[in-house]
């Protein structure tokens, strides 16, 4: 690993270190650190895990253990420009959530979890997004798309950058 190109920038390291005073242990900064890297790189490659571990005075395996528990962080390649989660849990499923997910997947030409060929969209299923009053719903980046219809799905796909 000594020869590997370093991934964490000074800005990321500074952002991670800013979390240190919040917790009595360094290990507690694991999730914030993973989010900081993921927000910027859209994934957390193994080399980043090694560098986070170094900062947090942990073994890389400890960081990797935590990371791999949460299905949230990708490690093979960055997600698309927009990462969208379509809810498939019961309240959304009752109002067409699964059909919405299928429709979006068909239109974008992907399976849940995959990124479209143009790299604009990573589409995933979600378990309950906690917006059952707006079922079926989708969280795209920081935007909650409510009461989805086919038209709204089309608009969403057209709006992607």
């Amino acid at each position: 690993m000594a020869t590997a190109q370093r991934i964490l920038t000074d800005e990321m390291i500074k952002a991670i270190k800013a979390y240190f005073p919040r917790y009595p242990t360094r290990q507690a900064v694991t999730l914030p650190a993973l989010h900081i890297v993921n927000d910027r790189l859209r994934y957390v490659p193994l080399q980043a895990v090694v560098e986070i571990a170094e900062l947090l005075e942990l073994h890389p395996a400890e960081v990797q253990d935590t990371l791999s528990f949460y299905g949230f962080f990708k490690q093979d390649k960055p997600h698309g420009n927009t990462r969208a989660w379509v809810c498939r849990s019961i309240a959304c499923a009752l109002r067409g959530g699964e059909e919405t997910l299928e429709y979006l997947c068909d239109k974008a030409g992907v399976e849940p979890g995959q990124t479209s060929a143009d790299g604009r969209l990573t589409l995933e299923f979600a378990e309950c997004l906690g917006a059952c009053d707006f079922a079926p719903c989708m969280l795209a980046g920081k935007t909650l798309h409510k009461d989805l219809t086919r038209e709204k799905c089309d608009d969403f796909l057209r709006s992607l950058e």
Partner: peptide, 21 residues
């Protein structure tokens, strides 16, 4: 912030997650 895991709502699961595990 969590990372999309239902089990973190269980109080001791939450505690473990908060500790970075």
């Amino acid at each position: 912030r969590g990372a999309a895991a239902y089990i973190c709502g269980e109080e001791t699961g939450l505690i473990e997650s908060l500790e970075g595990k």
